[in-house]
Simulated assay, not measured.
Amino acid sequence: MTVTVINSGSRTGTEVVQLYVEDEALGISRPALQLAGFQRITLEPSQEATLVFTLQLALLAYLSLEGRWIVEPGPMSISVGASSDDRPLRTLLDVTGGTADVTDSRAYLTESKSLTLTADLP
């Protein structure tokens, strides 16, 4: 997922951009909201940065009754914002295929990086 952050203020600012996932499927008892990644960015006034979050399939997993980390097909909500209460960017991801056992490739946070920094915005 790619997001652009712009410092529209008149002073240098730091933001922690957070990526969350939510399982939209019914029937599985999971946390309502799961922090999947974050990136701290400091921007000068009028500066912008493009952040890229790489969401691995294993981040969508839950612990089954058999003690295995699995991902089941179905809708997942992906959101980005400054906090769990402030997530203005949202999209729906449809996981397709069969149930995947990701026990041996368990991940806890996304990889993220800042691609570009620019200034001189009007």
Rank of each mutant, 00 (worst) to 15 (best):
T2Q: 14
T2K: 14
T2V: 09
I6T: 15
N7P: 13
S10P: 05
R11N: 12
E15A: 10
V17C: 12
Q18V: 00
V21Q: 05
E22W: 03
D23M: 10
E24M: 15
E24Q: 15
G27D: 07
I28S: 12
S29V: 11
R30P: 01
Q34N: 10
Q34F: 04
Q34A: 08
Q34G: 01
L35Y: 02
G37K: 08
G37M: 07
R40D: 11
T42L: 09
T42Y: 07
L43K: 07
E44V: 02
E44A: 09
T54N: 13
L55G: 00
L57H: 08
L57Q: 11
L60T: 03
L60Y: 09
Y62T: 05
G67E: 05
R68H: 12
I70D: 03
V71R: 06
V71N: 02
V71A: 03
E72I: 14
P73D: 12
P73R: 13
P75L: 12
S77C: 05
S79W: 03
V80Q: 04
G81L: 04
R87S: 03
P88R: 04
T91M: 12
D94G: 00
V95K: 07
T96G: 03
G97Q: 07
G98K: 13
G98R: 14
D101Q: 04
V102F: 04
S105A: 11
R106F: 08
A107T: 05
A107G: 04
A107I: 00
Y108W: 15
L109W: 02
L109Y: 07
E111D: 14
E111C: 01
S114Q: 10
S114F: 00
S114A: 15
T116E: 06
L117G: 08
L117Y: 14
T118N: 11
T118W: 00
A119P: 02
